[in-house]
């Protein structure tokens, strides 16, 4: 898991042939190939299709004996019910606030740190880079308990005294949802790799022109790594829109801070009756849709290089 040379992003497009095959195999090969891909694709889509169908079932469908799979009288109104009967707008707003904040923070911290690690020499650089690479290996479950209490006992926050006692600290604020994610080791690593590939001459020329260090970073360097920023944005957005365990842990008892996945999960008690299942499935559909839309819009950014990052 060493560095990747960003400039050597592999070309994609032309289909590969692994070897010259006999004629009959050349005819059957594509058939098998597309059959396999289609079968896989069908499996990929099946649960989503099942969800959309399920969302349309009426109580009459689920209370039939045996229950009907295909809705007899599709209940399109269920999507309006989702917004009327569930705190969907709160969840939605929280998802957006948290995801946008974290994504913005991660892009800022990753570009800054990545740039410093790539373009400056200073004592301790190697150590910090090792930390960035090494910290990625630490699984998140290790941090849940300690970070929970670090936020809980944050001095002078949320009614706490200087020793962190007396109040509830940062728990119960948006900060508890965002702060543990403002830096992403992976993002710093990714940006550092990108900045390394930018020639030093540019920096040098700018310095000669008398540009200050911060101005060079903002006006010259940042525009050059736009593709990397876009990639990081997309990854951060998807990851944090979908983040579940941490948000659930700190907002379990604070409905006004819950995001879409967390809200739907914690309201499971409301969906136990059979005639509530359709509402649950519709809510799930609504929780998934925004990410899919963002992905389809930005899909072109998903070039091969992202998936090979850290590989070679």
């Amino acid at each position: 898991m060493t560095a990747v040379d960003r400039t050597g992003a592999p070309a994609r497009g032309a289909p590969l042939r692994i070897a010259v095959a006999p004629r009959w195999r050349r005819a059957i090969g594509p058939l098998v190939k597309y059959a396999l891909l289609s079968l896989g694709a069908l499996l990929m889509i099946l649960p989503f299709a099942d969800m959309f169908i399920g969302a349309l079932r009426s109580p009459a469908d689920v209370f039939a004996s045996p229950p009907r799979y295909w809705p007899q009288d599709p209940q399109w109104g269920v999507y309006a019910r989702v917004f009327r009967e569930l705190p969907m707008t709160t969840w939605f707003a929280n998802s957006i606030i948290v995801t946008v904040t974290i994504t913005a923070a991660q892009v800022a911290t990753s570009t800054m740190a990545g740039y410093a690690l790539a373009k400056y020499e200073f004592g301790g650089r190697a150590a910090i880079f090792r930390l960035v690479v090494g910290a990625q290996m630490f699984p998140f479950f290790l941090f849940i308990i300690p970070i929970f209490f670090i936020l809980r006992f944050a001095p002078l926050m949320g009614g706490n005294d200087i020793a962190g006692q007396g109040g509830s600290g940062l728990l119960g604020t948006y900060a508890a949802l965002c702060l543990p994610f403002v830096v992403t080791w992976y993002g710093v690593f990714l940006m550092r790799q990108f900045f390394v590939s930018i020639p030093d001459d540019l920096l040098e020329a700018a310095r000669l022109d008398g540009a200050g260090e911060y101005r060079i970073f903002r006006s010259i360097m940042l525009p050059l790594v736009k593709p990397a920023i876009a990639t990081l944005t997309l990854f951060s957005f998807v990851y944090h829109w979908n983040e579940f365990i941490w948000t659930m842990t700190v907002t379990r008892a604070a409905p006004e801070l819950q995001t879409l996945p967390v809200g739907i999960y914690l309201l499971q008690g409301a969906f136990e009756d059979l005639d509530q299942k359709a509402l649950q499935q519709a809510a799930l559909a609504v929780s998934i849709l925004p990410v899919i839309v963002v992905f389809l819009c930005l899909q072109r950014l998903f070039v091969a290089s992202e998936f090979s990052s850290g590989v070679k």
Partner: peptide, 15 residues
């Protein structure tokens, strides 16, 4: 194909 196979990655784990 990529969009279809990447769909689960875009979906929250609760869903």
């Amino acid at each position: 194909w990529r969009s279809v196979y990447y769909l689960p990655q875009l979906t929250n784990i609760v869903a």
